[in-house]
Design a protein around this nucleic acid. Structure first.
Lengths: 207, 207
DNA sequence: GTCTATAAAAGGATAGAC
DNA sequence: GTCTATCCTTTTATAGAC
């Protein structure tokens, strides 16, 4: 048999790999750095994962799962668009405050190698149609303004994700590099983004 | 003297370097590929720019200049917030349709090496205060809803830039990988983003 | 200024002992 | 399973002829 530490070592490698790959990207990451962070040597990385690419794929697929919102879950509970909107925005911001490198990492790697998407498509079952149908329904009922439903979805993603992707730029220029208050700003966005979108698309009944 | 082609060669190198660096990033770019694209050999790259890093810095700084909106220009012409908003969104989308790799490139490199910003700060004179003051003014006058002025600026940037940064993801999942109609969508955003923001922040006087 | 050839270093991967 | 030592390829950078 074995010494019984293999799960432990594998987990240590994955933890280190997540850190290094998400910070440096595939091209910038070094196997040596991953080994050092995991407290082992390079040979072990290959013993467990055969190649840099295979290790990367494992990390990337996992990250993508976190990144694409699991809207399906919320759809079990409710079909009210405002409630869904609040849930999506909140869940995104909560995840990304813990994993700030996720957006740039995912977007960057998809940029360099769009074929990743083909594989991920089948494996993670991404499907926005249900959400788009709900949006269409609200539109037909006259509750929200006329627009391409996909456009609304893109705007939700934009407002939720961009401030994380652009964090080094925005936090320095607009928040004077004060990370604490920038995180506070990001947390407040659970409400402010929600309200911003509601004002932009829901037809006011106050008149 | 020299053979008189040096400006020409330098420009050929820069053109190739722009292409390769913005597509692959600093870590993924190869000097060989830049040389091939420029139709010369590697030795020439070092003759003109000494090192990969120096060549990269030159390209990056130039790209950042394009990326950060030159709001100052518009501020000469008008101080009306709606007009400014329309001008900013339009100019962004026009630039990025020509240079689709710009957002990911800039955001990615700032992520990996935030110190670039320190240098760029002094050299490009980025200063959003004037625009923020205008927003505050409109708020005090009761024309737009109460919010952190920086938040509005972040939302403008988010809605303008994100669909470019996330293009491989969004165009595949929501536009079925039809690049032509995705570009059409991006162009329409000169209007739709503007209208979206106006509905979200300007206090309606229709009641 | 431009080229060929080559140095020098880095980085991914493997062999083989324990 | 884990380590050390080493191979082999890639890649940046320079020397030197023209």
């Amino acid at each position: 048999m074995n010494s019984g530490t293999e799960r432990n070592t594998e987990e240590k490698i994955l933890k280190a790999a997540r850190q290094v790959f998400t910070e440096k990207g595939m091209a910038g990451a070094r196997m040596q750095e991953i080994a050092d962070k995991a407290g082992i040597n390079k040979a072990m990385l290959h013993y467990y994962f055969r190649s840099k690419e295979k290790l990367f794929d494992r990390v990337f697929k996992e990250a993508f799962g976190l990144f694409w919102p699991r809207v399906d879950q919320y759809l079990q509970t409710t079909t009210d668009l405002k409630t869904l909107l609040k849930a999506i925005v909140t869940s995104y911001i909560d995840v990304l405050i813990d994993q700030p490198f996720l957006p740039i990492f995912i977007l960057n790697e998809l940029h360099r190698n769009p074929d990743h998407l083909k594989r991920l498509f089948f494996e993670t079952g991404v499907d926005p149609t249900q959400l788009l149908e709900i949006i269409k329904g609200e539109m037909a009922a006259g509750n929200i303004v006329e627009m391409d439903p996909r456009e609304l979805l893109v705007n939700i993603l934009s407002l939720s994700l961009f401030p994380f992707a652009a964090r080094p730029l925005v936090s320095r220029i607009l928040w004077d590099n004060d990370q604490e208050s920038y995180v506070a700003f990001l947390k407040e966005r659970k409400n402010t983004v929600y309200e911003f979108i509601v004002r932009a698309v829901f037809v006011s009944s106050a008149c």
